[in-house]
Amino acid sequence: MHRLLTMTVVLTLASTPALAAGETLQELAGRMYRDATGGYLNEIKTWLGMGADINYQLPYGGKTALMGAVSGGQHAIAQFLIDQGADLGIKDDTGRTALDWAHFYGDKKMVALLVAAAGPAPVKVAVPPLKTPAPAKAPVAAPNKASSARGVTPRAWTDKARWPAFTHFRVGELVQFWTSTGWRRGVIEEVRSQQDRKYLISQLDQPTWKDYYAWGEVAHVTRSPYWTGFFVGEWRLGEVMAVNTRTDGKDLYREFSYAAASEALKINGDGTYLWKAGGKVTRGTWTPAASGPGVVVKDARGVAWTLVNHTNAIEESIRKLQTARLYAPGQMSVAANRPMGR
C-alpha cells in the first residue's frame, strides 16, 4: 500500500490577468513564443487574451510563435495558432517561413498541417522585365552579432558531489538552463532571494525572452565534475502526485497528495548503475548526458533515459528532498527524489 503525504497551499483568488507594471505586449508575445515551443496551450490562450500579437516577431531572429511551435514539434499548438489567425507567410531573419522550418526539421506531419492551412498554391503569372533598370538596393546592414558575446564566464565549481549552491552564479554570467525542450543558454539578469532560490535568465539568442528558473535547473555551460557526480547515489522513482482544488469563496485551497515511490535507481561512482522496477533488476554502465548535466541509463527494455536535476526551493524547504526526472524520447517522464544531505 502506498503511503500518502498531503500538503495544502492557500492562494488568494485573483481576477482576470492584466499587464503588470512595466510589462509590455512585446514581452507577452515573447512568452507566447516560449510556450508555443514547449506546448503550453493554456498559457498561450492567456497571453492572447491579454492582447499579445499572435504574429509578433522576436527582435533577435525574427521568429513568431508559430515558428516556435514548429521548432518544438507542437502540432496541436500550431493548429491552434493557425485557427487564431497566425500568418504562415512571415519570414524570419534567415528568410525562412514556418513551413520552411518544418521541412528543415523533417517533420512530415507539421509540413502537411501547414500546407493544408495555406491552401492551393497561387498560379504564377510571367511578368515582362522592366525596360529601365531598377533602382539600386540600399546596402544591407551586417547582422548584429553582439548577442553571441553576451555573458561572462562564471567561477568554476569544483565540488563533484554537489550542485552549485544558489547565488554561485551572478548577474551577467553565461549559464545554461533546463526547459521543456532541453538545455538552453542564457545570461543571469537577477538573483532572487534565498526563499525563492531562482534566477531570472534571458535566453542568449532571444534577450527579450526572460523567465525565472529554479537553481537546480541552472548550470555551467562547460562540462564540470558535478555534471555527473551530483547524481551518484540512490534515487527513489515512481512517486505520483495528485492535486485537489477547493475554495470557500475567499481563498483557494490546493491540496497536494503524494503516493510514495515504489522503484529505485542507484547510480554508482564507478560508472555502473542498478535499476529496480516492475519486479526486475537491471544492471549496466551509465554514460554522461551529451547536451548538459545528467547521466544516461537503460531500462530492462533497452530504452535510454536521461536523469536531469530539478531540485527547487519548495521541495527542499517543505519535503527536505532533492528532486530529478528521467526523460526518454516518446515516453512519459518519471519523477525521482532522494533525501537532502545524502
Rank of each mutant, 00 (worst) to 15 (best):
L41C: 01
L41N: 03
L41D: 05
N42M: 08
T46G: 05
T46I: 13
T46K: 15
T46S: 13
W47G: 02
L48N: 04
L48M: 14
G49W: 09
D53R: 06
D53I: 05
I54H: 01
Y56K: 01
Y56F: 15
Q57T: 02
Q57Y: 00
Q57M: 03
G61P: 06
G62N: 05
K63L: 09
K63F: 04
A65N: 13
A65T: 11
A65Q: 11
L66V: 10
L66S: 09
G68L: 00
G68N: 04
A69Q: 06
V70S: 03
V70I: 03
S71P: 00
S71Y: 09
S71R: 06
S71G: 11
G72V: 10
H75D: 01
H75T: 06
A78D: 00
Q79S: 08
L81D: 00
I82K: 01
I82Q: 05
D83V: 00
D83I: 01
L88Q: 07
L88G: 10
K91L: 10
D92C: 07
D93M: 10
D93R: 09
G95M: 07
R96F: 07
A98S: 15
L99Q: 01
D100A: 06
D100H: 08
W101D: 00
H103S: 05
Y105S: 13
D107F: 13
K108A: 13
K108H: 09
K109Y: 04
V111F: 03
L113D: 02
V115T: 13
A116P: 03
A116V: 04
A118V: 09
A118C: 04
A118N: 11
P120Q: 12
P120Y: 08
A121F: 12
A121I: 10
P122L: 10
P122W: 10
K124V: 13
K124T: 14
V125R: 07
L130S: 14
L130F: 07
T132H: 03
P133R: 07
P135G: 12
P135M: 14
A136T: 11
A136V: 12
K137H: 07
A138F: 06
A138M: 13
V140I: 15
V140F: 12
A141G: 11
A141W: 02
A142F: 01
P143K: 11
P143S: 06
K145D: 07
A146L: 06
S147V: 11
S148Y: 14
A149R: 12
R150W: 10
R150A: 09
V152P: 01
V152K: 15
T153H: 11
T153K: 14
T153M: 14
T153I: 08
R155I: 00
T158Q: 08
D159G: 02
D159K: 02
A161L: 06
A161F: 05
